[in-house]
Simulated scan of single mutants.
Amino acid sequence: MLVACALAILPARAAEPQAPGMSMVTFNLHHDREDWPQRRQVILRELEALQPDAIALQEVIQKPYVRNQAAWLAGKLGYDYQFVSTDPPGRFKRYGNALLTRRPVLARGEHLLAPRTDYRTVAHLRIDVDGQPVNVYATHLNERSDENGGRIRGEQVADLLQYIAATSGDAPVVIAGDFNALVDAGDLSALRQRYGDSYGSVHVNNQLAQVSTLNRHYYEAPSRIDHIFFQQDQLVAREARLLFDQPYAEGRWASDHYGVWARLQFAP
């Protein structure tokens, strides 16, 4: 009893406050394949638990009997969203990328990446993170694995960087999406010269070549092609991990990609 009393009067250790910053998720939704009504509930539960400041989504679809996937998730989460598609508004089927945020939106935009014949887009939101404006961009680059695909991705990266330079101002930049390329690929070199790889920065001593964001249930070779890049002079990557990398039921997965979550801290 005396020991219990002595322990009882010890002050509780306060949790260490996290430095100011933001969290970001990128995830390829695999549009509405493989029982979307069930998959979306699994995705929603994970995002509700994480409450990320911003979410980049790729392969977002809307069509008859399928409400816009980004709009559905945003509505359930209580988030604002920006959906970007080359399909005109009012068309029976639209397909593209989206950004979701729980933060106030200061500005928004969209851009069709060069070459225009590839129908690739970028979505942009400038959000207020506790008084600090941050630019977040979401994109999905060309999927071809041959030399021509690399050339197209290089052109898309150059156009993406020009769009960011024209729209970001002085606020920090975060770029997330499915780049269809390894982080050290030549077609992403111009991007890597200016922005850091959040997952690679956090897990620098791990065997990154064995990490995959392509779901190994669907794809044989590991390939980390979904990335969250950050502006290194204004942000620091503190945590990063994969999401949806386990089946939620026998043979059922949230997507054919895993998601990526990262926590970024404002640089001193």
Rank of each mutant, 00 (worst) to 15 (best):
A107S: 12
Q51G: 13
N180R: 13
H257T: 12
A19Q: 11
L77K: 12
V25R: 09
L44R: 15
A14R: 14
Q193S: 06
T117Y: 15
R13Q: 11
T86M: 07
P37H: 02
D130S: 13
H140F: 07
N148W: 02
A166K: 15
A267S: 05
A138C: 12
Q231L: 04
N97T: 14
P11C: 11
R108Y: 02
L2I: 04
A138Y: 02
V236K: 08
E46T: 14
G169A: 13
D245V: 03
Q156F: 04
Q162I: 08
Y79A: 03
G154T: 09
R216F: 00
D130L: 13
T121V: 08
S255N: 05
E147V: 13
A107G: 09
R224C: 03
Q41E: 11
V60A: 04
G21R: 07
Q162K: 15
H31P: 00
L100I: 01
H31D: 01
T121M: 12
D128N: 14
Q246N: 12
Q231E: 14
R126M: 14
A267G: 01
V122A: 12
R252W: 07
Q265A: 15
D226Y: 05
F83P: 00
A209T: 07
R39N: 03
Q265E: 15
R252L: 10
P172V: 08
E143V: 13
R13G: 04
L242F: 07
A176I: 05
